[in-house]
Amino acid sequence: MEVVGLSGSIVLAADDPAVLAAFYAALLEVEATPGLGPSHWRVPWPAGGQLEIYVPSRTRPQPHQGGRLALCLQQSSEGRDAMTVLTAWLEVAEHLGADQAEPPRQEPFGVEAWLLDPEGNRLLLLVS
């Protein structure tokens, strides 16, 4: 089977899509754009595609859930101290409305910090 015109995106249900789109756009230093309707926003995703943020249907609501799935934003330290880069990025995220879920820590693959975005979704900031 040949798949033609295939693309991908990440879908995130939100109580206030405009606010959550503004959060991710500011954190990624990109511009959010309106989507297919008044309760739908799109944010360009660094790996390609879009982060699609929308209000779920009232007939098929999306419950808030913890789970093990999380968004991950990653940047290179480019010769700078990785913890310093992460700390500065973390300050920006918190200023934009994120809450720190776990303090930053060094891992074999880089330094990371687990956050909750303004709607409580898990978010990992990773600097390698």
Rank of each mutant, 00 (worst) to 15 (best):
L28Q: 05
M83T: 06
Q65S: 13
V43F: 07
A18M: 04
H40F: 04
E78M: 11
W45R: 03
D15L: 07
R42F: 04
Q65H: 14
P38V: 05
T59K: 13
T59D: 13
L69S: 12
Q75A: 14
R60P: 09
F23T: 01
P63A: 13
A47C: 11
R42G: 03
S77K: 12
W45E: 04
Q75S: 08
H64L: 05
G49F: 13
Q74L: 14
P63M: 11
R80S: 11
R58K: 14
E52N: 12
S77P: 10
A25V: 03
D15F: 08
L27C: 10
Q75N: 05
L51E: 00
S77M: 15
Q74R: 15
D81K: 01
P34R: 08
R80L: 10
P56W: 15
P56E: 02
P63I: 11
M83I: 11
Q65C: 07
E29F: 10
Q74Y: 14
A18I: 01
V43Q: 01
L71H: 07
L27Y: 05
T33G: 12
Y24R: 04
W41T: 00
E31N: 15
S57Q: 15
P44S: 02
Q50S: 09
G37F: 08
C72A: 03
G67Y: 15
A70R: 10
E31L: 09
G35N: 08
P34E: 09
P56D: 02
C72R: 13
I53C: 01
V19K: 03
G79F: 15
P61L: 12
E78Q: 15
T33L: 14
A25L: 04
A70Q: 07
A22Q: 04
G48D: 13
S76P: 04
G48Q: 03
V55G: 01
E31F: 14
S39G: 06
S77N: 08
Q50N: 13
R68F: 10
A18Q: 02
G35K: 04
Q74V: 13
V43M: 05
F23N: 02
L73P: 06
L36E: 07
Y54Q: 01
A21F: 15
A26W: 04
V55N: 02
L73Y: 03
S76R: 15
V30W: 01
E52M: 09
E29M: 08
P17I: 02
Y54D: 00
R42P: 05
Q50R: 11
M83H: 11
A25W: 00
G48W: 13
A25Q: 02
C72G: 12
W41S: 01
A26Q: 07
L36K: 12
A21E: 06
H64R: 08
V19R: 04
V30S: 00
R68Q: 15
L27D: 00
A25T: 02
L20E: 02
A47M: 13
A22F: 04
A21G: 06
A47V: 09
P38L: 03
T59A: 14
L20P: 00
R42T: 05
D16F: 04
I53P: 02
L69M: 11
A22L: 09
V19W: 01
V30Y: 07
G67L: 14
P63S: 09
W45G: 03
A26N: 07
E52Y: 08
V30T: 05
P61K: 07
T59Y: 15
L28S: 03
R80F: 09
Q50F: 12
D15G: 12
Q50M: 13
G37V: 10
